[in-house]
Design a protein around this nucleic acid. Structure first.
Lengths: 232, 232
DNA sequence: TCAAAAGTGTTAATAGTACACCCATGA
DNA sequence: TCATGGGTGTACTATTAACACTTTTGA
């Protein structure tokens, strides 16, 4: 950036500074439902209401690092997929003060989220189709993050960040259905997965959801990257 | 956003504040080339070097408004397509100070950009394939903005913001080719355009580029929107 | 033995790509 | 009259969508 209205080395000194926060819309997946994580707001107004996980950027960290730190602090999870969605910069978006917020979409394997961490920070998962009432521009944030997620899964397999290492094709299909909000054809879906060599069928069988049992698959990130793909 | 570490109404008071800027990667189109606008940096380091048009967000405006204001101030153009691309938040990205910059992609009809405004702010258009040396993270910004533009034109006709109200199909095709960086088939291109009813063929003829003359088309925004489309 | 989820191929429809010639005009 | 860019349609290929039955097994 550049400022043409001044010409000396202290050109930045008169400019207004702002509080900068990150808000993370955290997605998880359970059984066949896409979930979003909120914590309870600790301060007035709307104390106790569900709110995305957020916090202020600190001096010694980048904005991305701030988002990662806050997520890690509050969920205990280290292996988090994080991607910037949009910056919310309206003047009165936060009634407490002028805060510019950078919104992230986070994808985590819900099983890694311990109950103790959830309780400690009063976090709660909500079904994407049964969201609680949200305040300020928080609904917008969730909507934008979901838009991002829907768009992203059509280019890349990031949705796998929502699943454990081994998964059945039925689970994977339910996951895509829950994100896209529509049913998919089982045979077409499996055909497409089988065309991608980095989906590896293992010898493991999951008997938890059927008597017959379903083959467990895993995703080979290295092969995926070596075939010229990025971003996972 | 929410801060769990404090519990009173002054919970924001201890937090660090940041300079927030907007940087706009401004695209234009001329003859058959996609162009990017830079101004000369007014301060050290790298004084005089090309840099995206940027400036600080002020207290009484949203971040989006800041981007719009800066563009309008420096180009004189009011009718600007602007869309957020990404926020650059690395700690040392600007050697002058910690500045968090929200990057925008701007599309303007180059003909509306008056020479006097260009001179006043020492702005210069560069061919996308012959960019000058850029400093800090400015190359990244241009790349991200171009990625955004390439992606966006596959969903929506925003590229029309780079053309005047009336245009020939050859110009439109050259525009898409310059953005996508590859040649397109003339017949397939025209077939697709003609399938979209909001591209209106007028009785006007442009004789500037051929003896025979080419029909001028225009884009019917209202019809486009009424057919369930958004974002233009 | 039967309920419940796993697994499996073919056909039709659609979208996308490749390709070559005539037209109108001003110089 | 000819050089230049404008304009047009068809056949092929690839991708996507629709669709129904058999298998396995624990209860």
């Amino acid at each position: 950036m550049d400022n043409t209205t001044s010409n000396n080395l202290h050109y930045y000194s008169d400019e207004k500074k702002f509080l900068v926060a990150t808000d993370c819309v955290i997605f998880g997946f359970e059984v066949d439902k896409l979930k979003v994580l909120f914590q309870r707001r600790a301060i007035e107004p709307n104390i106790g209401c569900p709110t995305p996980l957020g916090g202020f950027v600190k001096e010694d960290e980048s904005v991305d690092e701030a988002a990662y730190r806050i997520l890690n602090e509050r969920t205990g999870i280290k292996d988090i997929y994080l991607s910037q969605v949009e910056t919310f910069g309206a003047i009165n978006r936060d009634p407490g003060a002028r805060v510019i917020s950078v919104v992230y979409c986070a994808l985590i394997d819900k099983l890694k989220h311990s109950v103790s961490m959830m309780n400690k920070f009063q976090c709660q998962w909500y079904d994407i189709n049964q969201l609680p009432e949200l305040y300020f521009d928080h609904s917008d944030m969730v909507e934008k993050a979901l838009d991002y997620l829907r768009d992203a899964i059509s280019h890349s397999p990031i949705a796998l960040n929502l699943l454990p290492k081994y998964f059945t094709l039925t689970k994977l299909q339910k996951l895509y259905e829950s994100i896209q909000g529509r049913e998919l054809d089982k045979r077409n879906f499996r055909k497409r997965i089988n065309e991608m060599p980095y989906f590896i069928k293992t010898d493991l069988v999951d008997k938890s959801s059927s008597k017959r049992g379903a083959c467990l698959y895993t995703f080979d990130k290295k092969m995926y990257r070596s075939l010229g793909n990025f971003h996972i």
